[in-house]
């Protein structure tokens, strides 16, 4: 196991925590640290899982889910489908080259469905991270993605 091999290199003390997390996230193929791995690290260092989580959550460069830098949530509500003569999810899948619930290879985007965003009168809508985009068209989606690719 990759994690075992990395842990072996460090002394079993709390000071090693940050280095272990960095080394492991870097070495792991999909670059994120799962709950089981947190448990294993905590037990190796004789500290609590809460302590490991605390450090993980302090630094923005750690990822705890197999998710891209940006999470795109497509509204699964009815109006978003009825209102549009194109399919938002399908368009995004095509643009990103992944299916819903997948992450792009460069770890930039994760695509998922969400429950109604609550902006039905401006359907169709999607959310990227904390930001909501409404009245989508295929071209608008392309433009938004381009912006994220370049600037964010």
């Amino acid at each position: 196991m990759l994690l075992d091999k990395i842990l072996e290199k460090y002394p079993q003390q709390e000071d090693s925590l940050l280095e272990i997390l960095l080394a492991f996230q870097d070495a792991k193929i999909n670059h994120f640290i799962s709950e089981d791995e947190v448990r294993q690290i905590a037990s190796y260092l004789h500290i609590s899982e809460a302590k490991v989580c605390s450090v993980l959550s302090f630094y923005t460069f750690f990822r705890t889910e197999n998710k891209g830098k940006h999470v795109i949530q497509v509204c699964g509500g009815v109006p978003c489908h009825v209102e549009s003569d194109f399919n938002v999810a399908k368009t995004l899948e095509k643009e990103l080259g992944i299916k819903v619930n997948e992450t792009t290879e460069n770890q930039q985007f994760t695509l998922e469905y969400t429950s109604c965003i609550g902006l039905c009168d401006e359907a169709p809508a999607m959310r990227i991270d904390d930001k909501v985009y409404t009245k989508l068209t295929p071209n608008k989606i392309k433009a938004i993605l381009a912006e994220y690719r370049v600037y964010m």
Binding site: I47, S48, E49, A50, C53, S54, F58
Partner: peptide, 25 residues
Amino acid sequence: CKNIQTTNILEIMGRGQSMKITPAY
């Protein structure tokens, strides 16, 4: 919880405005 009971169940999660005190995850 950390220093007297050594259980360390509660910890600081995140930082800044969204900082919280919770158990792991």
